[in-house]
């Protein structure tokens, strides 16, 4: 089980990964150090692989920068659960192989200090506050997540040709 890091509504991409680094920081390890920097300066120090970010509405609003997804992914975050996601952020999560789950009940119930684990095959999030089920992803999305991201999916596709 991973630890839950809980945040509020309208968490934007500027606080997930500050704009000033977007064109200068591109190494995964360095990117991970700046994850959520302007939201929770302690996050990058405390997070462990398998931990889960939980947030309110409109998570990831703001710019289309993928570092806002990659930085927490490189920290080892296993999934992001929110009441709802900003559209481009949601897309970026899928295409980067970071599972994003819009689960309002789970997002409201969970707090920092809880524990959570996502079982994609079973379609359930198991947590210290109980189990939350979710419907399976559409086929095209599943194929991308299973490949580990859009790049990997396309690589497999073109390698097969």
């Amino acid at each position: 089980m991973g630890k839950v890091f809980k945040y509020g509504d309208d968490v934007n991409t500027d606080v997930l990964f500050p704009g000033k680094y977007t064109y200068t920081v591109s190494e995964p390890a360095e990117m991970a150090q700046h994850a959520l920097e302007d939201l929770d300066p302690e996050f990058a120090k405390k997070v462990q692989p398998g931990d889960v970010i939980v947030a309110g509405k409109n998570f990831g609003c703001g710019s289309s920068r993928e570092q806002a997804v990659l930085a927490p992914k490189y920290c080892g975050v296993a999934a992001v659960i929110a009441e709802s996601f900003a559209r481009i952020f949601y897309r970026n999560c899928i295409n980067s192989g970071l599972p994003a789950l819009a689960l309002p009940d789970a997002a409201r119930a969970l707090e920092s200090g809880d524990t959570a684990e996502v079982d994609f095959a079973a379609g359930v999030v198991r947590t210290s506050k109980g189990d939350f089920t979710f419907p399976p992803f559409p086929a095209e999305v599943t194929a991308i997540l299973e490949a580990g991201g859009l790049i990997e999916y396309l690589r497999d596709k073109y390698a097969k040709k």
């Binding site: 993928e66 897309r91 970026n92 295409n95 991201g149 859009l150 396309l154």
Partner: peptide
Amino acid sequence: DSHTPTAGAVGAFAAGVGRTETAGVWVS
């Protein structure tokens, strides 16, 4: 870029996507 919808002003369907997706469109 997230403000790609600006082009909807003339009646296009215009939406923002991510960088990896853009690479995907470039190649596929």
